[in-house]
Design a protein around this nucleic acid. Structure first.
Lengths: 154, 154
DNA sequence: ACCTATAGTAGGTGCACACCCACTATTGGA
DNA sequence: TCCAATAGTGGGTGTGCACCTACTATAGGT
């Protein structure tokens, strides 16, 4: 009797816990759709960076996405094999490799974004449009604060 | 020139992405404090469940926390070794093991919750108290919806 | 007494992520 | 011309999580 499958209230009371849970669901949902194309989250991040900022040298991608250069190499390699990005040696500095989006890559990214939006609609189903906007704004603030911690410790 | 380390706007525009990122930070922050005590997230979840609902049989823990029974066994075992829970064979049904919180376990949980709140304060630093409350409420709605999907698929 | 279902447990798998080191090719300055 | 720094790469490590498969002990119905 009762509801033996209810989560512990003292966890529910922690926003951190809810954030971590819902965040995992968000991540999982995205990952699932990406996996259907043999991609992972970093692949999408790289495609998005290229779409938003144009061609990058791999080092720049690593910096922008805060990932390890050697992991960038692997992700870019996989995207290149799949024909979603082009790699071109920089003529001026032959150590550098310019990575750019192919039309195929751009198309895939558009599809992924569309799917992400659909998934988001399901995930945020219980929220009104207005709430979703406010949630986004708040998450954005938190996210920005993550990257640029203003108060080291009060 | 420029800000070569800015994240791609098309990702930032996805609440799912922000949620996944901030969620990971939340998870990471909690995990970090837990790791200082040799614990992981599941340990805290189990402690919280015991604190909130009293002694559980392991199957109940598995159900309540949506985790695999065999993983429950491991987590409970580790908590028992650390003296934070007691395991007692049910006299009536000797297959069952009643898991209950020890005073030590309760104390650890209280500390963990306190640390979680402090961490939360840092994480949510850019949000007003009012915003935090609204964020919590929205996350709770999303979380509840996660567990009880109302619309299988529209 | 027997047979099936159940609770707990041991052990192992696969994945994603975050690192790290070593090595090559190449550059640019001393 | 030589050396130190840099870009890219290949390979490997450890961790956490989710999941799965036996296997043992026990219970409870028939």
């Amino acid at each position: 009797m009762g509801t033996p499958d209810a989560a512990p209230p003292s966890l529910i009371a922690l926003s951190t816990y809810l954030l971590s849970r819902t965040g995992k669901a968000a991540r999982g949902g995205l990952a699932e759709r990406l996996a259907a194309r043999g991609l992972r989250l970093w692949h999408m991040a790289v495609l998005a960076a290229l779409a938003d900022f144009g061609p990058h040298v791999q080092r720049e991608l690593a910096g922008r996405l805060s990932m390890d250069p050697s992991d960038v190499a692997k992700v870019v390699d996989e995207l290149a094999v799949a024909g979603q990005v082009d790699r071109a040696r920089d003529a001026a500095d032959r150590r550098r490799v310019a990575v750019s989006l192919t039309p195929a890559g751009r198309a895939v990214l558009a599809e992924l974004e569309e799917e992400a939006r659909k998934f988001q609609d399901e995930l945020f189903a219980p929220l009104s449009q207005d709430e979703r906007a406010r949630l986004h704004e708040m998450l954005h603030k938190v996210y920005t604060h993550l990257l640029h911690p203003t108060h080291p410790s009060p």
